[in-house]
């Protein structure tokens, strides 16, 4: 599978963490060289997550379904928002949002949770948070399959011609999640507060992302109050672009009956608008990844002492 990661045996080179990695690209190259290790660790993550649980893998399906039922009951009966096919919108938003949150949550504890390996053997430690992100693709796939079933039940087609845009959104989300996971996994070795604080941050992030509510509500409010230039403010959260893209493609407001479309007018804009937004998220993600990798390389040298 993998080619050997080591240079010819006669060449002296610094071992393991003995010197901080020179650059972020060097760190990523090391992760790539150890991709078979990465896949082994990711596979183990998937397996061990459901070991010792009765329903096992079914939790991946039950979890989003129960979540959907609760929010649907609340937002169609207790607090009607007038969104057509609300469950479908919710499943679309939570699918991509959870790719980020579960990835970051599992990534944050990936170093502290692997003491046995980290304290005994050297491998590029960056593999750990990245493996956590990769293993979450399985959970993501199960959420997407629920979404597909829901679309069939509602007889509501996605925007077929824009599917590639949704794939871009997934990739951008993974960059964002990897950046955050690499940064937080290193910090968590020193400050265990990080993992507790994270829950709070992610909860705030959930309500500041157009999953339950629609992007149009906030954007229109900003436009009406401060003028059209201020719509940008609604896109400040780097997760907003990926969620709106997902909504545009999979919830596909264009296929809704005309009277349900008005709150989605803004996201029915041309593809270039979505690409521009995704570009912003990608830049944020890359900056986060760069900072994460550099902080990681500074801190990894004394992981063992602090575990």
């Amino acid at each position: 599978m993998t080619t050997t990661a080591s240079p010819p045996p006669n060449e002296l080179r610094p071992i393991g963490t003995s010197r901080p990695a020179a650059s972020a690209t060097r760190q990523l190259a090391e992760v790539w060289n150890h991709r078979s290790l990465l896949l082994t660790l990711a596979g183990r993550d998937v397996k061990s997550r459901h070991r010792n649980s009765l329903l096992g893998f079914t939790w991946n399906l039950l979890n989003p379904l129960l979540q959907m039922v609760i929010y649907t009951v609340v937002f169609t009966y207790f607090m009607p928002g007038g969104t057509p096919m609300f469950p479908l919108k919710l499943l679309t938003g939570t699918a991509i949002f959870s790719l980020f949150t579960t990835g970051v949550t599992n990534g944050t504890t990936s170093v502290t949770g692997n003491t046995a390996l980290v304290s005994k053997i050297w491998f590029p430690r960056e593999v750990l948070p990245v493996a956590a992100i990769v293993s979450n693709l399985v959970t993501f796939a199960s959420r997407i399959s629920i979404l597909v079933v829901a679309m069939i039940i509602y007889r509501h087609p996605p925007a077929w011609s824009l599917l590639w845009l949704a794939v871009c959104a997934v990739l951008v989300t993974m960059v964002l999640a990897t950046g955050a996971a690499v940064l937080l996994s290193a910090l968590n070795v020193y400050f265990r507060d990080v993992q507790h604080f994270l829950d709070l941050i992610l909860l705030a992030l959930f309500w500041f992302t157009p999953i339950i509510w629609s992007y149009g509500f906030v954007a229109n409010e900003l436009i009406n109050r401060f003028g059209p230039r201020w719509e940008r403010l609604a896109m400040l959260n780097p997760l907003t672009p990926v969620v709106t893209v997902f909504e545009r493609v999979l919830y596909n407001p264009a296929a809704l009956p005309p009277d349900g479309q008005h709150q989605f007018e803004l996201i029915l804009r041309p593809t270039s608008w979505h690409l521009q937004n995704l570009g912003y998220s990608l830049v944020v993600g890359l900056v986060l990844l760069y900072i994460g990798l550099r902080v990681f390389s500074r801190l990894e040298g004394s992981f063992v002492e602090n575990l």
Binding site: I15, G16, V118, W122, S302, V304
Partner: peptide, 8 residues
């Protein structure tokens, strides 16, 4: 541990 590369 330093020779093994797990400590800097």
């Amino acid at each position: 541990k330093i020779i093994a590369g797990i400590m800097r």
